[in-house]
């Protein structure tokens, strides 16, 4: 196993777990959405680490495509969550 794989792989696991913990511990909508995005970034990092095959080899493009899909899905979910959170704040201020 490459040192790079181990280093970034562990970083990915850390981001995933940190995000998960953040979602469970926070109660504000915006803070939870942030944590969810961190959590997703961790999973994406793991995918990209899988794709990396050392300096001399072309990386596996499949995980890259999956992560691209994942990034777009994450931003869509973020947009919906933020719209809901804003609506809630509006209702509370009326």
């Amino acid at each position: 196993m490459l040192a790079t794989t181990i280093i970034y792989g562990f970083a990915g696991i850390c981001l995933f777990v940190l995000g998960l913990r953040g979602v469970l511990l926070h109660t504000t909508a915006l803070a939870r959405i942030l944590a969810l995005n961190v959590c997703g970034a961790g999973v994406f990092l793991l995918f990209v680490v899988l794709a990396y095959r050392g300096a001399g080899m072309t990386p596996d493009p499949v995980p890259h495509a999956l992560v691209l899909t994942g990034i777009v899905v994450a931003v869509s979910a973020t947009a919906l969550a933020l719209a809901l959170a804003r609506r809630l704040r509006e209702i509370d201020h009326d």
Binding site: G19, L20, L36, G40
Partner: peptide, 19 residues
């Protein structure tokens, strides 16, 4: 909002399994 957050958390766990 709660359904969305929890559901996304579930999807993330599922995706980690896929990795």
């Amino acid at each position: 909002l709660r359904y969305l957050t929890i559901g996304l958390l579930g999807s993330m766990a599922f995706l980690a399994g896929v990795v």
